[in-house]
């Protein structure tokens, strides 16, 4: 990724664009004195539990599509942020992980989509359980600024941000 593109990286959530306190780093040492860090899964798992818990900084974890979330499940209540990666928009594994983390395991920290986030996937991501999206794509940024999410008026499956549609059990309507 070029430096110019790096500069355009923006964090977006349902309420709009927001500042991102986190920096990505390979290890805590490499993160300098940043108050909030995202580490790769292996580095995160390598941290001593006590170090992690007593640290005065927030330590999030990034998970690649091919990596397993199982080792995180016991520690979910201590994780401030999980970043699930989308190296390409059409690698959909992170959707299932989001669904499991938020839906089944009750992860209450920030769930973030990172990588090839395009406008056509924004609603899918929100519904699968992502709280924030890290966006670099120009068209996606423009559309998000205009709050044009390519949404549908209703959904045919349960998902976050929606409520029973008052008809068939599988249908949902968005909640404002």
């Amino acid at each position: 990724m070029s430096a110019a593109e790096q500069n355009q990286k923006q964090l977006w959530g349902r309420e709009g664009f927001r500042d991102d306190p986190y920096i990505e780093a390979e290890s805590l040492d490499a993160a300098g004195d940043a108050p909030a860090v995202i580490l790769p899964l292996a580095a995160w798992l390598g941290l001593d539990d006590d170090v992690r818990r007593t640290s005065n900084r927030r330590i999030g974890v990034a998970v690649a599509p091919g990596e397993d979330i199982d080792p995180l499940l016991e520690k979910l209540d201590t994780i401030p942020l999980i970043a699930l990666q989308f190296p390409a928009f059409n690698d959909g594994r992170s959707y299932s992980k989001a669904e499991l983390l938020k839906g089944r395991h009750g992860f209450s920290g920030e769930l973030r989509a990172v990588g090839d986030v395009l406008i056509d996937q924004v609603v899918f991501m929100l519904r699968a359980g992502f709280d924030t999206l890290q966006v670099t794509n120009r068209i996606a940024l423009e559309r998000l600024k205009g709050r044009d999410l390519h949404d549908t008026p209703g959904y045919y499956q349960p998902g976050r941000g929606s409520a029973q549609a008052g008809s068939y059990s599988w249908r949902r309507m968005p909640v404002a």
Partner: peptide, 13 residues
């Protein structure tokens, strides 16, 4: 058909 239409989790299998 309904349930699978624009399924958020299963659109990029």
């Amino acid at each position: 058909r309904q349930w699978s239409s624009l399924h958020p989790e299963f659109s990029y299998l």
